[in-house]
Simulated scan of single mutants.
Amino acid sequence: MVFAHDTVVALQAAVALANSALEPDTLTTVDELTGFLDTWEYTGRRDGTAAELAEVRALRPAVRELLLAERDPAAQLVNTMLADERAVPQLVRHGRHDWHIHAIAPDAALARRIVVETAMAMVDVIRTGETSRLGVCADDTCAGVVLDLSRNRSRRYCSAACGNRNAVAAYRARQRS
């Protein structure tokens, strides 16, 4: 594995958050936010309010910008995010997860925790020079963020739907010629 488990999960959650803004928007209700948080095993405070949903939705452009930034600009964004949130990394253990890093109190607002967890995951990406593992979907009709954790760096599409659509289009093009 390229990254520690907590880094992988935080990156996957950040990609899912950024891609939730694509059409159709998949983060429009408090119930959808709850599903997102459950899927990515976010711990800590949850208010379950429309205001919390609005705060998380407002993060999506900044998260997308960070995920797609080149290494040096990404480092600057991470430093700003961590400084703005006054992050203090600490090793914690909870639930079924062994020691991992949290850098903000579990009772901090959800949007603040998402920013810090994403920034902390990007610290590992930047330090290891692996920013090329993040990119934009190869489907010309999609702007989704792709996280490539494959060993051979072969992931090109943000979802199976985009990959299948392109495979079918390529097959049909071959059949026509």
Rank of each mutant, 00 (worst) to 15 (best):
R112E: 14
R112H: 13
R112M: 09
R113E: 08
R113F: 01
R113P: 03
I114C: 08
V115T: 15
V115M: 11
V115F: 03
V116C: 09
V116Y: 09
E117R: 14
T118Q: 08
T118P: 02
T118C: 12
A119Q: 11
A119V: 06
M120V: 13
M122Q: 05
M122R: 10
M122F: 00
V123W: 01
V123Y: 03
V123K: 06
D124K: 03
D124W: 01
D124Q: 13
D124L: 00
V125M: 05
V125P: 05
V125H: 08
V125E: 10
I126Q: 05
I126P: 02
R127A: 15
R127L: 13
R127E: 14
T128E: 14
T128R: 12
T128H: 09
G129K: 01
G129Y: 00
T131M: 09
T131C: 10
T131V: 13
S132I: 02
S132A: 14
S132W: 08
R133E: 04
R133H: 08
L134R: 11
L134V: 05
L134Q: 10
G135N: 04
C137H: 06
C137N: 05
C137K: 08
A138F: 07
D139S: 14
D139R: 11
D140Y: 00
D140V: 11
T141I: 00
T141Y: 02
T141H: 12
T141Q: 12
C142E: 07
C142I: 03
A143D: 14
A143W: 02
A143N: 12
G144P: 09
G144C: 11
V145D: 08
V145E: 11
V145Y: 04
V145Q: 10
V146R: 09
V146A: 07
L147S: 01
L147C: 10
L147N: 03
D148L: 06
D148N: 11
D148M: 08
L149F: 02
L149Y: 05
L149C: 09
S150L: 11
R151S: 12
N152T: 15
N152H: 13
N152Y: 07
N152I: 04
N152L: 04
R153A: 13
R153H: 14
S154L: 07
S154Y: 01
S154D: 11
S154W: 01
R155G: 00
